[in-house]
Design a protein around this nucleic acid. Structure first.
Lengths: 191, 191
DNA sequence: TGAAATTGAGTGATTGCTCACTTATAAAAT
DNA sequence: ATTTTATAAGTGAGCAATCACTCAATTTCA
């Protein structure tokens, strides 16, 4: 790794850690610089602004996750199998870099509106898979956005509570349960 | 309503609306005052600080919701019935004051750690109900915090996507689905 | 008339960002 | 090899702007 890339990586990691611990608005550029062992001015060699740094971190993870999910579910046949691969991919992604994952989870509200139209999006991947399954008659036809939200919530809320420290251990340990639960949500009988 | 109470209520509503639209840190005291049609100094007659105003708004809703949920589920017999009353109560609470609800939903991460120990807590209510049902053998024994998170996620993630504008209509319209789905999550068979 | 409520200019502290300058690294010239 | 030149990387004091909060003066109202 070149010197410059190393500095940039250190800045990103320092910012990430502070953003998760204290929030984006509450973190100062001076703190980021100190944590990365550089001068404040150095931040601006690599990022045009603090806001852009925060957005870059978010989008990088957001699109990377979306592509990984799309890739993971493609070979799987049938909704049940697709759910499991998606859940597994998501959990492994989370466990691999928990700080980055927590940052993404805690700051969706601020950044989601800034995701470019047509850019890879984890939610779209899931939505499309569910939509396909409805067309194929694998699950009851319902409001796709509603059931997608509920199915996603099964995993995301658990991840959120892990961020809060309400339970411990790797997310991946519960892939089977998440997949079963998400499936159960999608398969709820109409009455 | 007395004049003072009216001013306080106007300030709270103005702050709430701005906090949801732009975020707490991004909203200035000047803006709040303007939106409430009072001078900036007036804020400090009713609240010791902007932070305390934001926290008050959160805690008021948080504890009110917790008490309503606890009250609602008490008379219901059996987990299935309890789930439905809890879900219905939650959705009605959300539909009744959507701005307040959205504020609570979007700012959990910042304020949840500041909830006093032992204070009424919506999550605790749900957790206890599930814990009871496990003891009674109504559902499989599992990590309570994990399954509680997933069950709660079924409703909360849908609510979140409604905040994002991904779908429309009242949350209450989907009580039956949410209850069925949450039940399905809790009842997932062990293998 | 006196207490309560409201005002808004003023204050001190903070913050993101700039920029003139230094240091490190590499390339070119002698 | 050594010096010169060029470029990239890093620095940190300082600036302009913002913001939460104060308080002496004013208005409201019982």
């Amino acid at each position: 790794m070149g010197k410059a890339e190393d500095t940039k990586a250190r800045l990103e990691r320092a910012a990430l850690t502070l953003f998760v611990a204290r929030g984006v608005a509450e973190t100062t550029t001076k703190e980021i610089a100190m944590a990365a062992s550089v001068a404040e001015g150095t931040i601006y060699r690599y990022f045009p602004s603090k806001e852009q740094l925060a957005l870059d971190l978010f989008l990088h993870h957001h699109q990377g996750l979306a592509e990984a999910l799309a890739e993971a579910q493609r070979p799987a046949k049938g909704l049940r199998a697709k759910i499991e691969t998606i859940v597994r991919c998501y959990c492994e992604w989370a466990d691999r870099d928990w700080t980055l994952f927590a940052y993404h989870l805690l700051n969706q509200h601020s950044f989601l509106i800034q995701v470019p139209d047509g850019a890879p999006n984890p939610v779209t991947v899931v939505r499309d898979v569910i939509s396909q399954a409805m067309k194929a008659g694998e699950i009851p036809r319902r409001n796709v956005d509603l059931v997608a939200a509920s199915a996603i919530g099964v995993v995301m809320q658990a991840a959120t509570y892990k961020v809060y420290g309400r339970f411990t251990g790797a997310l991946s340990d519960h892939v089977r349960f998440f997949a079963d639960a998400a499936w159960a949500v999608l398969a709820v009988k109409e009455k």
